[in-house]
Amino acid sequence: MISDLLKYTSMLVVLVLLQVLLLNNIQFSGYVNPYMYVLFILLLPFETPRYLLLLLGFLIGLLVDIFSNTPGMHASAATFMAFVRPYTISLISSRDSIEVSIPPRLKTMGFGWFLRYTIILVLAHHLFLFFIEIFSMSGFLHTLTRSLLSTVFTVILIVISQFLIFKE
């Protein structure tokens, strides 16, 4: 239990730092911003209480906000993503395939499941974020394109990271 706490805390710190120090500086042609810190919300264990999920989502979003001077924007998007997560899991999994004891990882859940899981949640987060950022429906297609392209990029980063770092 304590080791879990330590593990997820360090994951939170590492992902926030990675996001604000490295990834925030990547902007291809003003379109693509990868937001990889959302990986934290993806990797939380299945048995995480739902209220904790929301609070943790809010927390990591707020941390990213504080470092990138956008109070509230990432917090709201990450909270939204945490809100959608339980519904996504029940949508893409058959009832008995989820064992609460194992965490949602690429290795444990299989590539197909993990990819669907990642794409849906990252897309939800990015759409929310980019529309909050522009704060209107004008330029709808432009914002949509930005969200989709960034989603592709973030998903690729997340999948690669699963193969490389979080092998355990």
Binding site: L54, F58, G61, D65, G72, M73, A75, S76, T79, F80
Partner: peptide, 8 residues
């Protein structure tokens, strides 16, 4: 939480 975010 969303309301808090929006206020921020």
């Amino acid at each position: 939480l969303e309301v808090v975010s929006m206020i921020l």
